[in-house]
Amino acid sequence: MARPTARKELIGQSSDPRVPVSMTVNGERVEREVSPRMLLSDFIRHELRLTGTHVGCEHGVCGCCTVIIDGKAGRSCLAFAVQADGADIRTIESVAAPDGSLHPVQQAFRECHGLQCGYCTPGFVMSIVDYLEDNPDPDLSEDAIREVLSGNLCRCTGYKNIVAAFRRSAELMRGSR
């Protein structure tokens, strides 16, 4: 039988020069020097200490890490901080009003009990905010909503109340327009 050993080549290069990055995050300009391999999710969470963006898989499946990059929702675990140089990024921390009052999407989640542990929630909220900004009059049929939500995993709620929250979000956003 073959004897597996540690694969040294997979630690990569020996030096790790830092690269300057600057971007706008939640309306504020930030500048840092980072290792090219730092994931955008880690940059947001650890460098900027915006810990509302969560990490559930680091391979693009769960959606917990979703943020809005240059006006489009994307996985922050599937981007490096260096790729966001010059980008405009919005995280969950920017969604509520400065006084803390909830955005319609957040309000809808609360009304509909769309969260339990809350770990997946910021990812859902960011995906939905982005989607509804792009599609102010969305198809509200059950299947259509579920398809939009299908990029995010939730292990607690069974999705039913998240579907309801999506419907309610669309309604509240229409109302506030």
Binding site: R45, R49, G52, T91, E93, Q106, R110, E111, L115, G118
Partner: peptide, 21 residues
């Protein structure tokens, strides 16, 4: 009754273990 804890979680202000500085 709606849950007291939700607003903070929805704003991204939850405090999960890796969030603790």
């Amino acid at each position: 009754i709606a849950r007291n804890a939700d607003a903070a979680l929805l704003r991204g202000e939850g405090s999960f273990i890796d969030d603790i500085d």
